[in-house]
């Protein structure tokens, strides 16, 4: 489970580029290429700052006009998906439980 204190970062196997506001993510060992939309790319950009998930949600809440509960639900689901796919990993020193 991802907590607000969890710090997430791109895994060493993943390469990411923001192109025209969207994101291209490559997991090279698995041979997978993902395209994420503008919001997904923004989340990946924010992960570069090693900000804990809570801070990341605060930043997104300030940038997008959406209620906080929906934002948290969507962002956490997205992060979990990236985590499950091996694109990002827990960088906070412990397991993401």
């Amino acid at each position: 489970m991802i907590r607000h204190t969890t710090v997430l970062a791109k895994s060493s196997d993943a390469r990411y580029r923001n192109i025209g506001g969207e994101g291209v993510v490559v997991r090279q060992s698995a041979g997978e290429v993902l395209v994420v939309n503008g919001v997904g790319a923004r989340v990946l950009d924010l992960l570069e700052t090693r900000t804990p998930v809570g801070g990341l949600l605060d930043t997104l809440a300030a940038e997008y006009a959406i209620d906080r509960a929906t934002l948290e639900c969507d962002v956490l689901a997205y992060l979990q998906e990236l985590l499950d796919a091996g694109i990002i990993e827990d960088a906070s020193g412990g397991s993401p439980d």
Binding site: G31, G38, V39, G40, A65, I66, L71, D74, E81
Partner: peptide, 23 residues
């Protein structure tokens, strides 16, 4: 401000996936 240009809020729905061609 919507989170997505068509008003959708789910980010995962806009994700596409491809597989790198074998060499």
């Amino acid at each position: 401000m919507p989170m997505h240009s068509d008003g959708q809020t789910a980010m995962t729905g806009a994700r596409t996936e491809e597989r790198i061609e074998p060499a």
